[in-house]
Write a protein that binds this DNA or RNA. Structure first.
Lengths: 112, 112
DNA sequence: CTGAATCCATTCTGATACTG
DNA sequence: CAGTATCAGAATGGATTCAG
């Protein structure tokens, strides 16, 4: 029901843009790759993703969390401990990203 | 062969980023929607996409053309006439965008 | 008509320092 | 350890004007 994206539907474009904006930000794919190998903590991510600033990492994680792509788990301990992991929506996203990758890697084939 | 995007492969991320950058730019999706209903000329697109500047439209079309998503056909006439239409890569992209749309529209459902 | 050039506004990102 | 605040620089988009 109405999850078809037709020429006349403005709304679906907006939805699509939102989705692309989330996964299209710089670092997002790298973050997802890191998390795909398992739960990670903030400092771990920061270390793996050499060059990312804490601000950017924080922003990206916040967005990913808001979009239910990753799950943030806070342990009320001292020192503070926070873990990030894939949510189920993140898992289903992986397949799409894989398709998109294949699309991009596809040879231009018989042109000209 | 090697079109699997694994944790250890840096290269595939770059490819993915490139693809997302192309389709993720503002207006790109709108342009693709316009073209999905058939071949269009520059002025037609500019008129349909109310608010787009010729510069932006030109840039986006150039990128889409470079990535073989749309085809540019120039008629050596006076006044000049240029037509844009979907390439085959554009067609296969449509399916992926549809999947992505469905992913984005997917309800957060039973999490927790 | 097509689209390149220019200038300006807005947004995004990075580096660094600092707090709970 | 986790994350925010601040500021500067880069990248992106828009309006307008001009040219082939």
């Amino acid at each position: 029901m109405s999850n078809q994206c037709e020429s006349s539907n403005e709304n679906c474009i907006g939805q699509l843009e939102k989705s692309i904006a989330v996964i299209g930000s710089k670092w997002t794919l790298l973050i997802l790759r890191e998390l795909s190998s398992g739960t990670k903590r903030f400092a771990q991510l920061q270390k793996s993703l050499k060059g990312i600033s804490p601000k950017t990492l924080s922003l990206r994680l916040k967005e990913l969390e808001k979009n239910k792509i990753v799950i943030k788990k806070i342990y009320p301990e001292v020192p503070p401990r926070v873990e990030y992991s894939f949510a189920s929506r993140g898992e289903s996203l992986k397949k799409i990203l894989h398709d998109l990758y294949e699309w991009g890697a596809e040879p231009p084939d018989g042109e000209k």
